[in-house]
Amino acid sequence: MKKYITDFTIVGKQVFSETYFSLTLKHPDRLPEIAAGQFVEVEVPGNKQVMLRRPISIHDVDVENNTLSLLVQVVGKGTRTLSMMSVGDKLNLVYPLGHGFSIEGNKVLLVGGGAGIAPLLHLSKCFASKGIRPTVLLGGRTEAMIPVRKEFEPYGDTFFATEDGSLGEKGMVTQHSKFTTDYDHIYTCGPTPMMKAVARHAMANNIECEVSLENMMACGIGACLCCVVDSDEGHKCVCKEGPVFNINKLKNWTK
């Protein structure tokens, strides 16, 4: 898939909380094809403390309007600076990067935690376009940590788990009543301990499982070799060979 460097214009911004916001970015011309699970490297303007681009997964794609959207969690200087951007501002992206989800299976579960919800919206749309309605299970510590909910409903049966019980069932996603063996494929993105628990469940029950990783990276295109993960074939770049991996390819993920 060809990669591009393009100046996008911010045409929409939603602030969900102090921690979460989303930006809708319009391509100056025609948006190329983007797979669910791919990401962008965003140049962070106007902050001299932030030199490197920030890798952010693609939340949604609207081919009719030539827009893509990013759901961002404020975690440091880069994302804080991005949170202060406004509609009309330009953002330079290197995109679309990495390998996305495989989009296979008939009985499909998507499990998202925190900012890991982001790529699952585009993914659930991709399943819907194949006539498959996935079960979507989203988790967070509190209701506020699950910023995007109703957007999933047209494409999947959506359920929630919060640690304080403020939304959906109380507890972890892996304790949820929909977290069963009733699936042939599970796709997950979120905090590593959550994904590892999901991976163990999938492995134990012979369910195909793909996880989306977010290691620290510089280039995003497989040049700097900073973002490696241990795989069955040695170190692999999360940016190029991932960010989505089948758990069978990863070392120490299902023990």
Binding site: M51, C224, C226, V228
Partner: peptide, 23 residues
């Protein structure tokens, strides 16, 4: 060569540290 273990980079003021280790 497999190079060094992750994490291998950190952003620092106007620069970055790397420890890829010749992978």
């Amino acid at each position: 060569r497999q190079g060094n273990a992750y994490p291998r980079m950190a952003e620092t003021p106007s620069g970055m540290l790397n420890a890829v280790g010749l992978q």
